[in-house]
């Protein structure tokens, strides 16, 4: 699987993503600067975490209008899979490649802790190697992870398998305590309509090595590599 990781000014998890992708695929991803208007031919495009452009105006708003995003949009429209994590998810919603928006955490505090995710749709190229209902514990670290979509959009997401992951407790249930940021319906990640674009707030790339304290993020990357190789 060939992949590219887009780097914006203020990205800070790009090397974590590179390490996770290389571990899973055995190939080093290309790093592409946001001002580049060309992307190498790849099987997966990844927008990593960070604080692109200092989160000025709104998290992801400036980055969504970067030169490279024209090409990311063009590839996404052709069906090239795109994964956005944390700031990458925010950028994908700002670019309207994913529905909804990510707002300030309901607590108004930066949240940095492990969260447990439940796989809601395992019938996609990203999640096909996982089981529906499967749980994985991975870290999250964000200030603006509060997923909002209007009622009609939430219903459409629900009806079409558009919800990828939800925050759950140890028993696998969605509760207010298990929801770190106030996201509507405990949504941690969503797909686009064709399930070729995935965004999620938590960081599976930071749970791929025993030194991270857990390796439950590996299964996601292993599954993506399997689907795209």
């Amino acid at each position: 699987m060939r992949s590219a990781v887009i780097v914006f000014p203020g990205s800070n998890r790009e090397m974590d993503m590179v390490a996770a992708l290389e571990q899973a695929s055995g190939r080093k991803p290309a790093l592409v600067w946001h001002k580049d208007s060309e992307l190498p031919e790849v099987d997966l495009i990844v927008l990593p975490g960070g604080f692109s452009h200092g989160d000025y105006l709104r998290a992801g708003a400036m980055a969504a209008n970067s030169p490279v995003m024209n090409e990311v949009r063009r590839r996404a429209e052709k069906g090239v899979p795109v994964l956005g994590v944390c700031n990458g998810f925010q950028i994908l919603t700002e670019a309207r490649l994913l529905p909804g928006a990510l707002m300030r955490n309901a607590s108004l505090r930066f949240v940095c802790r492990n969260v447990t995710l439940r796989v809601e749709n395992a019938q996609t190229l990203f999640t096909g190697a996982l089981e529906a209902g499967q749980r994985m514990t991975v870290p999250c670290a964000h200030m603006d992870g509060n997923y909002f979509a209007d009622d009609d959009t939430l219903k459409r997401l629900e009806d079409t398998g558009g919800v990828a992951f939800r925050y759950v407790d140890a028993a696998g249930e969605t509760t207010d305590e298990a929801n770190p940021n106030g996201s509507r319906d405990s949504i941690a990640g969503v797909f686009n309509e064709t399930k070729t674009v995935l965004g999620l707030m938590p960081h599976p790339e930071d749970a791929v090595d025993p030194l991270h304290g857990g390796t439950e993020g590996r299964a996601l990357f292993a599954g993506i590599v399997k689907a795209l190789s």
């Binding site: 105006l57 400036m62 209008n65 909804g100 928006a101 707002m103 909002f148 209007d150």
Partner: peptide, 9 residues
């Protein structure tokens, strides 16, 4: 529409 506001919210 393009930048200053996010019309989703």
């Amino acid at each position: 529409r393009k930048l200053l506001a996010n019309t989703v919210i």
